[in-house]
Amino acid sequence: MTERLTRAQQQKRTRERLLDSAETLFGDRGIHQTTLDEIAAAAGLTKGAIYANFGGKKDLIAALLQRKLERDDPVRPRSSLESWVRSVGESYEASAPTPQVRRFAMALVELWLFGMRDETQLGPFRDWLRSVREHLADDAAVLGNRLPMPSDQAAALLLALDIGVALQYLADPEAVPVSTYTRGVEALLGLPVRPPGR
């Protein structure tokens, strides 16, 4: 016997299917080359489902970025700078090699290019970057005067390191191991840089 879903549960499931399809197609084919009909078909739905849940491509992009932000919000220990860096590094190193991160990285590059080519479309991506930096700055601010720079500047550099290492790792993992991120965070924050694997 199958369990009946409530209307809210059905809508959430539909939204997730559409977001999964959009993320995959945007990463594989590009935003301009992907139609709403193709996204709906890949999700096994109609284009009407997109308009009922998102309103259009721009809202779909904003929802993709918001979903990524919500999924990347783990509770991290904050007792010391060292434990925070260790937690951030372990989380990064565990998630970077996954297919989901690869798929999002490809979509992220597309979203970035989409916004840079058409400034009227830059808003959702810019808002996402700001939200990620604010989250990182809040985390870092808890660590107080242990930071070698203001927390908002540390957040901007940590995000640049995150994106930059991920793109290089995904393109050339032998030359840029995923542990490069953790070593970079340690160096950026003035901690002794531990050898990989420790």
Rank of each mutant, 00 (worst) to 15 (best):
S79W: 06
D72E: 14
P150D: 09
A52L: 15
R71G: 15
F125N: 05
D73E: 13
S91N: 04
E134N: 14
I163E: 10
D118H: 11
R4V: 04
P195R: 05
D152K: 05
D139V: 13
T182F: 02
D172P: 02
R103I: 01
A107Y: 02
D152I: 01
R29S: 04
W128L: 06
D139N: 15
D127R: 14
A41N: 03
G27N: 00
V142L: 15
F26M: 08
P196N: 10
R15I: 13
L157R: 05
K12A: 14
S95Q: 13
L170P: 08
G89C: 02
L167H: 12
D20M: 06
T24W: 12
W84V: 02
D172V: 08
L147D: 07
A63I: 09
A8K: 06
L113T: 10
F54S: 14
S80H: 08
L136W: 08
S179Q: 05
E82R: 09
P77T: 11
D73M: 11
L64E: 10
H135A: 14
P196T: 08
E23N: 10
P177E: 05
K47V: 15
Q121H: 13
I39Q: 02
R146H: 09
I31T: 03
A43L: 01
R130C: 10
R76K: 15
V176D: 02
M1E: 07
L18N: 09
R15W: 08
L25Y: 07
A105Y: 01
R4E: 10
R130K: 13
D72T: 13
L189Y: 05
A137I: 05
R102Y: 10
T34R: 00
G89E: 01
L167G: 10
A140I: 07
A8I: 01
R117L: 11
T14V: 12
G89T: 02
R102H: 12
A62G: 13
A40R: 05
K47I: 12
R183Y: 00
P195E: 07
L189T: 03
F125T: 09
D28C: 01
G190C: 00
T6K: 01
Q168R: 15
R67P: 13
L170I: 09
I50M: 10
S80M: 07
M149K: 02
L161E: 11
D172T: 14
D152Y: 03
R86W: 05
E82L: 03
K57V: 13
L36P: 02
Y181I: 00
D72K: 08
A141D: 15
L5E: 00
W128Y: 14
L158C: 04
T14K: 08
G89F: 00
L158D: 03
E134R: 12
A141M: 13
Q33K: 06
A156I: 00
L60A: 14
V142D: 15
R86L: 08
P124C: 14
V165H: 03
